[in-house]
Design a protein around this nucleic acid. Structure first.
Length: 419
RNA sequence: GUGGGUGUAGCUCAGCAGGUUAGAGCACUUGGUUGUGGCCCAAGAGGUCGGGGGUUCGAGUCCCCUCACUCACCCCA
């Protein structure tokens, strides 16, 4: 209990029993994304602090108090990425990827870092699956991206996930809406809770996040973006909705949906679940048409999303049982000569792509078989001095207990046929 | 940063109003079968009772502090 060293708070080990599930999630993401023509991009975990401050927003919680920032000697400050989009956009600009038509749809997977107080479904090092699309201004991009996201969740058989959809407007109409909303909130300020009064001033859109019933009741009468969007945003939003409807994807119109990062415009969406307690956002994303230019690139529209892998895994664990280990062949070897022969045999099996293990310490046959059983071995090939002298060992099928003699030189072919 | 809950073996937990060498189940090792797994039986190994201080003749048990884990607020993946 009083371990000398423990993992840092909020940073979890992924143990072998769980790693298979992670691999499944990652493999499914890669497979689905590549079906849609997305290509992988890998960017550093460390970026200049300035990049995140600019893109995520100086006044967001992430930038104000959650980033792991440090300098080494005279270089820095650097920040461990709290999300993936900023780095991908930086790379997109730096390598002039707008000139490469094959680099408009990008995905990336990996760890993110935020110094928050950990709780269920929230860690300081956590993982996201990320997809971004550059250069497509129209609603088809948003539509296809969401369809892809939902089909990934479907492929993984995520038990409970609903899509929430909203639009945040654009530089044309958002200011009008914000102004209107500010007016509304100011008029009703006395009835709102203190948090909401604070938010009403700092970031009015956030008041919609308030969970207090009294505030929600007041907000029922608040103006929404949906009422106030400009024709361009309206067309775009209608376009996105119609694509989702044609694709048979259900969604909930959620005018209160606000994204936490500053760079979003127009489409915003989030996938929520009821099965994870307070951390109900499985993933989210939206359109960010201004960010590329903001970060110094050519004006380029973009849409993207991030999925929280830990949350996905938590959800999948409710449905799936932990996978037992498995092994095709275990070579039970007795004596040095048998071990030498077995070691060669194992190399032969592995050359054929058959996974197998040999004992690495001298143990009784009984304990070797017990071990093979624990590893989930399908077959055990028993080879001792006596078998060796006649050139054939005993092949045992663990599930049935049936045994038969197999010549050493025939083993590889024999097993190949059986598997 | 703010609250609540919990800390006894690798895991899940007992431990009766403070009283002698701290327990169980599972897991692990070995044996019961001169060389045959799972089931069963037996034995063994494994604990500074999160840490520190205090009260007491005596503390896993009571008090204080601290740390860790966890859930929630905030915010988000």
């Amino acid at each position: 209990m009083a371990d000398k060293y423990r993992s840092i708070r909020g940073m979890a080990d992924i143990l072998p029993g769980e790693a298979k599930l992670w691999q499944r999630v990652e493999a499914a993401a890669r497979r689905v994304f590549e079906l849609y023509g997305f290509r992988e991009i890998r960017v550093p975990l460390l970026e200049p602090t300035e990049l995140f401050a600019r893109s995520i927003g100086e006044t967001t919680d992430i930038v104000e108090k959650e980033m792991y920032t440090f300098s080494v000697g005279t270089s820095g400050p650097y920040t461990l990425r709290p999300e993936a989009t900023a780095g991908v956009v930086r790379s997109y600009i730096q390598h002039r990827l707008h000139l490469d038509p094959a680099a408009r749809k990008l995905y990336t997977l990996g760890p993110m870092f935020r110094h928050e107080r950990p709780q269920k479904g929230r860690y300081r090092q956590f993982h996201q699956v990320n997809a971004e699309m550059f250069g497509y201004p129209g609603p088809r991009a948003d539509g296809e991206l969401i369809v892809m996201l939902m089909s990934l969740l479907g492929e993984l058989e995520v038990p409970d996930a609903r899509l929430h959809l909203n639009t945040l407007g654009c530089p044309e109409c958002r200011p009008d809406f914000k102004e209107e909303l500010a007016r509304f909130l100011k008029a009703r300020a006395k009835e709102l809770c203190k948090d909401c009064r604070r938010r009403a001033k700092s970031n009015p859109l956030r008041v919609f996040d308030c969970k207090k019933e009294t505030c929600q009741a007041i907000l029922k009468g608040a103006p929404t973006v949906l009422d106030m969007m400009c024709p361009g945003c309206r067309d775009h939003f209608e376009g996105v909705k119609s694509i989702l409807e044609k694709a048979g994807i259900g969604y909930r119109l959620d005018p209160y949906l606000v994204r936490g990062l500053d760079y979003y415009t127009r489409t915003a969406f989030e996938v929520k679940t009821d099965m994870l307690g307070a951390q109900d956002a499985l993933g989210g994303g939206g359109r960010y048409d201004l960010l590329v230019k903001e970060l110094g690139g050519p004006s380029t529209p973009a849409v993207g999303f991030a999925l929280g892998v830990e949350r996905l895994i938590l959800l999948l664990k409710k449905a799936v049982k932990e996978e037992a280990p498995g092994l095709s062949v275990y070579l039970a070897l007795l004596g040095d000569d048998a071990w030498d022969a077995g070691f060669e045999l194992a190399r032969g099996l592995r050359r054929e792509g058959i996974d197998c293990e040999v004992p690495l310490d001298a143990r009784s046959l009984k304990s070797q078989l017990r071990y093979a059983d624990k590893l989930g071995a399908r077959y055990v090939f028993i080879l001792g001095e006596e078998e060796l002298s006649r050139g054939a060992g005993t092949l045992k099928e663990m599930a049935t207990g049936l045994q038969e003699d197999v010549r050493v030189e025939d083993l590889v072919d024999f097993i190949k046929k059986r598997l």
